[in-house]
Every structure is written in structure tokens, then in C-alpha cells.
């Protein structure tokens, strides 16, 4: 295949990665931005979203579109409720101490994996795409569903942005992020905001998973890669910066595809990983973050 078509394919693949990654990373970024909590279990909320999508879709045999739509509603709600509960039961009791919450969320990561293994099993299970259209380009074919994933992610991202910037909920969240003590003094129920933000972050991960699962499959160990990638995106973008998160997701998604054009796959992964580490070393506040006060 010529260089041009190869590049087109790499960019398309990069966009799909970037689309779902930005949703997942946005969740992680919100939680860090507002609560100053690094949620290591974020990837497991993603995994739970996929597993629940599988369970819901299995309830609509022969009706993939209906099953998908139901999963799109049910999975984020269920995962959000779980996240809300774990915030109340664990994180709140730790007083949202940064290091203690890291350890606690590592524990939650393992517990959620164990729960998935116990109740869902160790198999990878496919979820049918709501529709299957193959788009034939002059050089290769491409999945119509993947293009839908890009579009759907953009819509969901826009909706999230609207909520954050144009509604009272968003205002309260931003106030809490800016200064939790002052917000409390002005009568904002900071603890409730925290629990809500933690749930919202998990819901975004679950949404991304519902979109991704017809492309890959549901598996109890699938949360690790999204976690790692989201971390990278959030850090590169600058902790707590939503705009940075989006740009970084695009950057990481696209570069992952393009770097793989020039090197053998594993070597490409090594180079991409080291590059991210070095960006952080020389610009620890990320590309868009402000230096620490």
C-alpha cells in the first residue's frame, strides 16, 4: 500500500482511539481536577461498562441496535451508582488524601477485577455492533461503525462541555475545583459534589466502553490499557485541564497510529512510551497545565 493511503488509515485509526480515549480521560481528568484524586480504578469502571453492555445486549438477542441503545443508558447508570457508593464508603472516609486514595483505588481496581471474574467469568465475549456497514475506500475497506464511534464521541464530549460550562451543576463543580473551602462557606455541599463528580467520571469511562465494546470485546482484564492511556493523556494535557485533555487525546491517538507506520509494532510502542515519559520530564505540568503554584 502506498504512503498516502497508509497515512489515511493510520489517521482514521488514530481518530477512533482519540475519540474514546478523550471520553475516558475526561472522566479521569474531572475527578483529578475537582477532587485532586488519582483514580487508579478508572480503567475498571471502563471494564465494568463493557461487561454490563454485554449483559444488557444479551437480553436483546437478534436486536443489536436495541441492545446497544439500552446498554448506552444502563451501563453508565449502573457504573455511576457503584462509583457513588465507593466514594461514600471509601474515599470520603480517607478525607480525599491524595496518597491514601491512590492506594485505596488500587485496591478497588483489584476488587472490581475479582468481581468481574467471579460474576462474569474469564472469557472474552463479543457484543454485536448496532449496525454493520463496511465502507469501501479505493485502497481498503473500513468499518462504518468506527466512524459512528467518532461522531458519537464528539456529541458526548460536546454535551459534557455544555454541562460543565453552561449549567449550574458545572458552575458548582468549577467553584469546588477552584477552592473547596470557599465553596463550602458559600453553602455548596462539597461532599455531595465530590461523590457526584466521582460518579460522573466513572460514567464517562463506562460510556466510552459501551462505544468501544462492539469493536473489541468485554473481558475482565480489559481495563489496564485504557487506564494507562488515560493517565498519559491527562498528564500530557495538564492535570485538570479539559481543553488539554482533548488535545492530548488527539495527539496520543494520532501519534500511536503514525508511529506504528515507521517501526516494528513493539518498538513503536517502546518509542511512544518513552516519548511520553520525556515530555513529562521536561514539562511536568503538561502541555496545557499551569506550573504548580
Amino acid at each position: 500500500m502506498g504512503f498516502g493511503p497508509h497515512l489515511v488509515l493510520a489517521l482514521l485509526e488514530g481518530l477512533v482511539t482519540a475519540a474514546t480515549l478523550s471520553l475516558t480521560a475526561l472522566g479521569l481528568s474531572l475527578v483529578f481536577g475537582v477532587m485532586r484524586v488519582v483514580n487508579v480504578a478508572h480503567g475498571e469502571f471502563f471494564m465494568l461498562g463493557a461487561v454490563i453492555a454485554w449483559a444488557v445486549a444479551a437480553g436483546f438477542p437478534g436486536e443489536p441496535a436495541l441492545g446497544f441503545a439500552a446498554a448506552l443508558v444502563a451501563a453508565p447508570l449502573a457504573v455511576g451508582a457503584l462509583a457513588y457508593a465507593s466514594d461514600r464508603l471509601v474515599l470520603k472516609r480517607l478525607g480525599y488524601d491524595p496518597e491514601a486514595t491512590i492506594v485505596a483505588t488500587i485496591g478497588m481496581l483489584y476488587i472490581l477485577q475479582q468481581a468481574a471474574l467471579t460474576f462474569y467469568g474469564a472469557d472474552a465475549r463479543p457484543v454485536p455492533a448496532p449496525f454493520s456497514v463496511r465502507i469501501q475506500l479505493p485502497w481498503f475497506g473500513y468499518s462504518g461503525y468506527k466512524l459512528f464511534v467518532i461522531a458519537a464521541s464528539i456529541v458526548l464530549l460536546a454535551a459534557t462541555w455544555l454541562v460543565l460550562s453552561r449549567t449550574r451543576i458545572g458552575l458548582i463543580m468549577r467553584a469546588t475545583q477552584y477552592d473547596a473551602e470557599t465553596a463550602q462557606a458559600f453553602g455548596i455541599p462539597v461532599e455531595k459534589v465530590y461523590a457526584g463528580v466521582f460518579a460522573l467520571g466513572a460514567m464517562l469511562a463506562a460510556l466510552a466502553a459501551v462505544l468501544v465494546v462492539p469493536i473489541s470485546q468485554a473481558h475482565y482484564l480489559m481495563g489496564r490499557d485504557p487506564l494507562l492511556l488515560s493517565f498519559i493523556v491527562v498528564i500530557i494535557g495538564g492535570l485538570g485541564s479539559l481543553r488539554g485533555t482533548l488535545v492530548a487525546a488527539l495527539l496520543i491517538g494520532l501519534s500511536d497510529g503514525v508511529v506504528s507506520m515507521f517501526f516494528s509494532p513493539t518498538l513503536a510502542k517502546i518509542i511512544a512510551t518513552l516519548a511520553v515519559a520525556l515530555v513529562l520530564v521536561f514539562r511536568p505540568q503538561g502541555l496545557f497545565g499551569k506550573p504548580a503554584r
Binding site: 485509526e13 481498503f140 473489541s216 490499557d225 506504528s260 509494532p265 510502542k269
Partner: peptide, 19 residues
């Protein structure tokens, strides 16, 4: 074409398959 075990999507490697 050796695919790293951490990979969960493969399309980007298919252009490396000689025509």
C-alpha cells in the same frame, strides 16, 4: 508482523501486509 501483546486493535498494522 509481530504484534505487541498489549495491543487491542490491529487495523493499523494491516498495511504492512505486502500486496
Amino acid at each position: 508482523i509481530a504484534i505487541p501483546p498489549t495491543e487491542s486493535s490491529f487495523t493499523r498494522y494491516f498495511p504492512q501486509i505486502p500486496a
